[in-house]
């Protein structure tokens, strides 16, 4: 294995776009805090928090999201009794953001196009209060097994699982909202898994970009007029983020608008409007970039799109 220092060089391309880059590099060398989402499909928020307190499990609320907490002194949240009971789900802090941007309401019909292993899909189930219907799709059979284990443990009853290639998901209905949490180069996961750095390079960015734009184009076809499509990745690479949204806006701009991300209590940066000497659509600034050192989290890019009526 190459020295980590050498591999961190591969993130040097972001020196001009990530603020306080030195701090960023120091932050990603540290392990991630252990965060979990309280699953309110099997017990109330108050009940779960009271249980943890009574059992002497130390935690603090995330502040910006009432169903998220940060655990102290618990190395493996998956070994907690509350995990076994399906009262909590280990989920990285910024991974809790995309479902909250979908303007979900009970009774809706929702598609999660790249759903496995199901953290966000089960959060969607929670936001729908186990009503309506969620199609949780993923092309990987192996990862679908994890999705099923997770949603059944969490007491989700409003979910069906499909295994289509998301780029060719069939037109069977119009969804109220679609999530495209796309496969990506996973740079933002570096705190959990430094080995992601090894695969980075122009070829990976190019391959991911093509896949991601095909997924997002398909998602726009599948959402109803007026419906929301949220696009997210856990990478910093503009090729996989703004350039994907830029491509789709240029292709389908007359049918699509980008909306601002509104989220209180977390720090984030606007989307890039220029990369590699290339000008992008100015409204891409409405996207949001969450960097690890801003909130002591992983990394996330997210865009909120609405199909015009």
């Amino acid at each position: 294995m190459a020295e980590p220092g050498l591999q961190l060089e591969r993130l040097r391309r972001y020196e001009t776009v990530i603020p306080a880059f030195g701090e960023f590099l120091r932050c990603i060398a540290r392990p991630l805090p252990k965060t979990v989402r309280i699953n309110t499909l099997k017990a109330s928020l108050e009940e779960v928090l009271a249980r943890l307190e009574e059992r002497g499990i130390s935690f603090e609320p995330l502040g910006w999201y009432e169903h998220g907490i940060r655990l102290h002194g618990v190395e493996r949240p998956g070994n907690l009794l509350e995990y076994f009971l399906g009262f909590i789900h280990p989920q990285e802090e910024v991974s809790m953001i995309p479902p909250l941007l979908m303007e979900l309401e009970p009774g809706q019909l929702v598609l999660d196009l790249c759903a496995a292993p199901g953290s966000k899909a089960t959060q969607i189930a929670q936001l729908l209060a186990n009503t309506g219907h969620i199609v949780a799709n993923d092309v990987s059979a192996e990862r679908l097994k994890l999705l099923r284990d997770n949603y059944e443990r969490l007491g989700v009853l409003n979910m069906g699982v499909t295994a289509y290639d998301g780029r060719r998901f069939p037109s069977a209905c119009e969804f109220d909202a679609v999530l495209v949490d796309a496969p990506c180069s996973c740079e933002g996961v570096v705190r959990k898994d430094p080995s992601v750095l090894r695969a980075l390079g122009p070829r990976l960015y190019r391959r991911m970009h093509r896949l991601q734009r095909a997924l997002l184009l398909r998602a726009v076809e599948l959402v109803k007029p007026g419906g929301i499509v949220v696009y997210s990745t856990c990478t910093f690479a503009p090729e996989e983020n703004e350039l994907v949204v830029d491509y789709v806006l240029r292709r389908l701009g007359e049918r699509l608008e980008i909306e601002p991300i509104e989220l209180r209590g977390l720090r984030y940066e606007p989307g890039l409007t220029e990369w590699g000497g290339r000008e992008l659509e100015p409204e891409l600034a409405l996207c949001a970039r969450f960097y690890p050192h801003l909130n002591d989290t992983g990394g996330l890019f997210v865009a909120k799109l609405r199909r015009k009526r």
Binding site: G132, H133, L144, R148, G160, V161, P170, A172
Partner: peptide, 24 residues
């Protein structure tokens, strides 16, 4: 399997091939 009944998709979305439908 038990699946929450939904007006928007009774018995799931017609025309989709499901691998799983609700909870066993």
């Amino acid at each position: 399997w038990a699946l929450r009944r939904s007006e928007r998709a009774p018995g799931g979305v017609q025309g989709l091939r499901y691998e799983a439908l609700g909870m066993v």
